[in-house]
Amino acid sequence: MMLEIDPKAKQGVQLGPVTVTAEDIQSFAEAMGDLNPLYTDVEAARAAGYPDVIAPPMFCMRMRGGRMLPEVPLPSGFMSLNAGQEIEFHDEIIAGQTYTITSRVADVYEKTGRSGPMEIIVRESTFTDAEGRTIVTIRERQIVRSPEKKI
């Protein structure tokens, strides 16, 4: 198997601009069991010098959405799993602010893991704020393989 990557996927797709809400941050923090007051209490966040609540570092994964973009169509019956990621944080994600996410397929390669051959899709996403400053970059790996082999 070699996955076919649309040239547009290599160029990248844009998500947003999206405005982050305090409610989104709170529901995400609760789902992770992380009730840091800077994530849930606007007064605590203001006391710490922020204009509104800030997001936990991993909130960027929620912003990029449940599906990794750009989408790469998988052959029928194939499964995929997230293998891991590397994130660089340049500044905080803050409620009420607007961000744009640009994602592209940076690489595709084959690898043999514990349980056999697999294909890895590498995506890079860059988050910029309304002034064009880079806030977060994510590099993530998605494992793809046929269903008769477990990931």
Binding site: A31, M32, G33, D34, N36, P56, P57, M58, M61, L81, N82, A83, G84, Q85
Partner: peptide
């Protein structure tokens, strides 16, 4: 995986 990463991130912060 992202939940495990997020919970681990709670320890980090």
């Amino acid at each position: 995986g992202m939940l495990s990463m997020g919970m681990t991130g709670k320890m980090l912060t």
